[in-house]
């Protein structure tokens, strides 16, 4: 069923991906599965950066791991360069991993503590290009270290000797050394201080520009992804709420949840802060395992109707993007009418 890759084909195509976790059984039968990711579809063009934004429990990290097949999806397909990953054997998948790499949130924890930087960065090379000589490997490691802003002299040091920002550069170097087509960055800067965060974000922006790599950038922080996204996907309880071009979503969010999320981001602006309206939500986060017919956001949505609670809105085109809401673009209380 796989089509030949052509110019119009996206690098990554995710269709109807669901990742559910079994939660064991109670005395009265199996407990409902946890629907961490529910029926998510999107594609990613070559050289494009798609940011997946959601709060804790939205399933964004699970989605990343489902795409990379570090978790086995319950349903759905993932095509990377026209190849369906679910159809690959274990060994084929292992080989295919050189095209897709992951960057972690906790930079130091993601580096093997008893191995040197050189060993860490060269492991992917050893794995996928065992024919390389030691000298060639060292050369490649030195190149990539320089490219991410590390001195090759640091190659014999151990992860615990680095600060968070430097460790994240090592993690990025390890991910880039195989020259992957797809880079999945799972909250790559949220463990870093602001001043270091900016360095790493800039590095990722440079990588994107110079290596034409496609990136899935996962974050809970709308201001962080603002500077790096081409497109934006807003996830809530495992489902897509809104997906489209980043700029237009930032300027004119259409889904109530996106609006709430944007309004809640603190601004660095003291004057007029009293008047700025932040839309409050209750804490009634429904359990992701609960069976629900309607929109997952309905229980907290300030403008939800009985229809919202009964029927899940389909992701439909609206104002140049896709929104999963029965009333896309609806104005919330206190919001300026557009």
């Amino acid at each position: 069923m796989s089509e030949a890759p052509s110019k119009t084909n996206p690098l990554l195509k995710v269709s109807n991906l669901s990742v559910h976790f079994k939660q064991g059984r109670t005395l009265f039968g199996p407990r409902p599965a946890l629907r961490a990711v529910d029926d998510v579809s999107f594609d990613l063009a070559e050289g494009e950066t798609l940011s997946i934004v959601g709060e804790s429990g939205s399933g964004k990290s699970t989605l990343a791991r489902g795409v990379l097949r570090l978790l086995k999806p319950t349903k759905g397909q993932v095509w990377l360069e026209g190849q369906e990953l679910g159809g690959l054997s274990g060994e084929q998948l292992r080989k295919a991993r050189r095209h897709m790499q992951l960057i972690f949130q906790d930079p130091i924890a993601s580096l093997s503590p008893r191995r040197t930087v050189e060993q860490i960065i060269s492991e992917p090379l050893q794995t996928h290009y065992p024919q390389l000589s030691g000298a060639e490997r060292r050369e490649k490691v030195a190149d990539i270290m320089r490219a991410v802003g590390l001195l090759p002299d640091m190659r014999n040091r151990y992860p615990h000797e680095f600060s968070g920002g430097q460790a994240q550069r090592i993690g990025i170097a390890r991910a880039l050394v195989l020259e992957p087509r797809l880079l999945v960055a799972d909250e790559p800067v949220s463990a870093l201080d602001v001043s270091i965060q900016a360095q790493v974000l800039n590095l990722l922006a440079d990588i994107k520009q110079e290596r034409k790599v496609s990136m899935l950038f996962i974050s809970h922080d709308l201001s962080v992804v603002h500077h790096i996204s081409d497109r934006l996907l807003v996830l809530y309880l495992g489902q897509v709420m809104e997906i489209g071009h980043a700029k237009s979503i930032y300027e004119r969010p259409q889904h109530p949840y996106t609006k709430v999320l944007l309004s809640a981001v603190p601004r660095m602006q003291v004057v007029g802060r009293e008047k700025r309206r932040r839309i409050h939500l209750n804490d009634d986060l429904p359990s992701p395992s609960a069976k629900r017919a309607g929109c997952p956001f309905a229980s907290r949505c300030p403008v939800a109707t009985s229809q919202c609670k009964a029927e899940m809105p389909k992701l439909t085109d609206f104002e140049g993007r896709q929104v999963a809401c029965h009333f896309p673009g609806i104005a919330l209380e206190g919001e300026k009418a557009a």
Partner: peptide, 19 residues
């Protein structure tokens, strides 16, 4: 995380155990 990192890179299980 670092074991997941190795898995994500495609490092074979035997090497993960050993290294």
């Amino acid at each position: 995380d670092f074991i997941e990192a190795a898995r994500a890179t495609g490092v074979p299980t035997a090497s993960i155990v050993l290294r």
